[in-house]
Design a protein around this nucleic acid. Sequence first.
DNA 1: ATTTATTGTCTAATTTATAGACAATATTAA
DNA 2: TTAATATTGTCTATAAATTAGACAATAAAT
Lengths: 241, 241
Amino acid sequence: MHNPSEQNFIQQLSIDCVIFGYDDNQLQVLVNKLNFNGDFWALPGGFVYQNEDIDKAANRILHERTGISEIYLDQFYVFGNAARNNLNFLDALIALNPQMTIEGKPNKEEYDWFTKRFVSIGYYALVDINKVVPQKTDIDESIKWYNIKDLPHMIIDHNAIVSKALDSLRLNLDEKLLAFNLLSETFTMKEAQQLYESIFDKPFARNNFQKKILDLNVLERLEKKFTGAANKAPFLYRIKK
Amino acid sequence: MHNPSEQNFIQQLSIDCVIFGYDDNQLQVLVNKLNFNGDFWALPGGFVYQNEDIDKAANRILHERTGISEIYLDQFYVFGNAARNNLNFLDALIALNPQMTIEGKPNKEEYDWFTKRFVSIGYYALVDINKVVPQKTDIDESIKWYNIKDLPHMIIDHNAIVSKALDSLRLNLDEKLLAFNLLSETFTMKEAQQLYESIFDKPFARNNFQKKILDLNVLERLEKKFTGAANKAPFLYRIKK
DNA sequence: ATTTATTGTCTAATTTATAGACAATATTAA
DNA sequence: TTAATATTGTCTATAAATTAGACAATAAAT
């Protein structure tokens, strides 16, 4: 990425994406570690070009980091406290990374651009974790899935952003049939139930969960899935076309 | 208001407020008519100072136009299409208001500031219409309550903003007990029911509505309200302290 | 053939929501 | 003074939805 202060972005406006996946019976969130000395973690984010819809910008950011698009993505909240800026983060970063400075001083334009107060629009995305190969950008040392219960401490308010995104996910899960975006194309009822249990962090009764999901009338039943386990094989389901 | 391009606002970011009231058995929205030649209506809105939380900015805007604060106010959506700007509106305004130009040209800084693409954060507020005396600012010719079913055609996407605000109001009405913000301090059950009916634009059964509301366990019953009508006098209620 | 763990589904019990009914009552009309 | 009228408050009956309990079906191991 080039110096954003030289690009045609809207100033002081950013987008932060909470990209949810599901693996290992747990909700996962895509987090990148910044490619600098020091342990700086951040949500995938970016800025909005002057001629770009904010939804398109969020899609672009999602595509950059996951290689996929046309995925469920929705804004959920705007984080706009006056004190919300990169000052502390950037000073810590520069202190640990003298190569960023010229004769001891950071690039002034870039520093000024970054350290202003930012209003950030939070988007959350739901992806099939098997379809995503997380992509580093040149500011990333790594980008990885983290169990939502075991996230690293991230910069600024990014941990709070994840928390708010989870609230929104829970609120909208049923109404917008969001859960199936997190599963593979075909799945068993047990997998769907475990996903619900991990999202809401509470158990569901098996018999009634199955009824509730089937009563949605959005799934079609496919062949059985023989797992080799010593019991009745479950059916596979997928969303009706 | 001074030329906003000379003030310390965040650029290209605005706030638009959908201020809901309730009167005449109908939801009402506060709309101002701009103090220029031509019929330009707009939602109360404004910009965010560099050192101001976005929630504080929304509160300030609300207070400017209604004289009240500490009222229910919440962000509900961000409107951020790339094509979202004041260009058409401002050109129409200038064409009808030659006094805005100097030697046929508008103030360039102000014009440039206003005609950029704006990302607008939508807030909705719920007020007791009896406590509000709508306040003109110096850009307003008038500011008035309009029946939500009979709003004027407003600038840019303000009519769509109201529509989205109403969706959010309906979604959150029960969960956050929002309705009582729209009523006077004391009210009858019938008034509460009529409010619900106007918000959802559908009838509620009287017996079950009363049960539902009382089962919320948030109201206390006061004395009867003698209206002079030839029938049993209804009780007054208010929110428990 | 028997055992085991899990799945799919049925029915019963409980809770919640909706509909119907009626007594209470503030005023008007007789 | 009494009856009529319109509306309010609340009760009960019915219907619908949710939750809990039960059991047959079955894939593989014993």
